[in-house]
């Protein structure tokens, strides 16, 4: 689904001493099927932004469109339920939302709230559990007997079972070990392609933004600070550093190569092995200077 923010502002507790402008005149759009990374420090407005995507909050000013759904300041949307079925949100530490006696019931919770038929739910539950790489034997276990990483996968399966068109991920790998982080991100990348989802990823990891996203939005104090393709955005090292954000390590390193060895290797998503080959040529002096 296409997503458009049109001059969206959001203010917490307006006209009170605690008034706080979380989003200020935010405008951007991306088309169906994009993988968008939203980056910014704590307090930059990221979590307020994603709450607009399934109508958990309404813009104080401006309008948000998600496919054919519209959220407009001051107007009540009567189709919130439908919208929430179409937009699945994986919150930070999603394992905290588990509550059912069995994994199966917890995964089925979302779809049954949206009135999906029983047979259909069974099918979806199976698909979802295998999508998150857990075995079907787990379905009858209590989610509270699982390890932290497994609980997170169950919670994600619960969102996938809603069969959403848009998947919103709020730091889905926070607190996992590096291996778990990579597994989860690879899983989302695969689902994104397979199910032709529109994915919005909130992350602190520049590497994830570089590796998985095709569009990056950097927020600062509730405003869009930078926006564009990852490779373009990460070229602007100074601009990023001035808001205390890093560039991905590989780009940082290639910049240093250019400075010390005076050789430019531009990054176009090469693997480490490919980079090593290019670098080896530089060192051996056999690199063509066309």
């Amino acid at each position: 689904m296409d997503i458009t923010f049109d001059h969206v502002s959001y203010t917490y507790q307006p006209n009170s001493p605690f008034e706080h402008h979380a989003l200020k005149d935010l405008s951007f759009q991306f088309s169906s099927g994009s993988f968008v990374a939203v980056i910014g420090h704590t307090g930059s407005g990221k979590s307020t932004l994603i709450q607009h995507l399934n109508g958990l909050v309404q813009p104080t000013e401006g309008a948000v469109s998600i496919g054919s759904y519209h959220l407009q300041a001051g107007k009540k949307n009567k189709k919130l339920r439908e919208l929430r079925e179409k937009v699945g949100v994986v919150f930070q530490y999603p394992e905290h939302q588990l509550f059912e006696e069995t994994v199966e019931k917890d995964i089925a919770f979302g779809p049954s709230n949206f009135g999906v038929g029983e047979e259909d739910i069974k099918q979806r539950t199976k698909e979802a559990i295998s999508a998150v790489h857990l075995s079907e034997d787990m379905l009858q276990r209590s989610p509270f007997d699982l390890s932290g990483g497994q609980m997170r996968r169950v919670a994600i399966a619960g969102v996938l079972a809603m069969d959403p068109d848009v998947l919103v991920l709020d730091e889905p790998t926070a607190g996992l070990d590096p291996r778990g982080q990579k597994e989860i991100m690879d899983m989302f990348a695969r689902l994104h392609k397979q199910k032709q989802l529109t994915t919005v990823l909130v992350t602190h990891s520049m590497e994830d933004a570089l590796n998985y996203a095709d569009h990056v939005i950097i927020l600062k104090d509730g405003e869009v600070y930078k926006e564009g393709a990852p490779l373009e955005i990460f070229k602007e090292k100074e601009a990023l550093q001035s808001v205390q954000l890093d560039v991905p390590e590989v780009i940082e390193f290639l910049g240093e190569v250019e400075r010390t060895l005076d050789e430019k290797i531009s990054y176009q998503g090469q693997s480490i092995a490919e980079l090593a080959k290019e670098l080896a040529q530089v060192v051996k002096g056999g690199r063509d200077h066309e």
């Binding site: 590096p178 291996r179 990579k182 390590e249 590989v250 390193f253 480490i272 092995a273 980079l275 090593a276 080959k277 670098l279 080896a280 060192v283 051996k284």
Partner: peptide, 18 residues
């Protein structure tokens, strides 16, 4: 366990004959 980027790169460099 994972290793840092620079370690991985060093390993690949060795494989590439450096």
């Amino acid at each position: 366990l994972d290793t840092p980027f620079i370690t991985k790169l060093a390993d690949e460099l060795k494989a590439a004959g450096i």
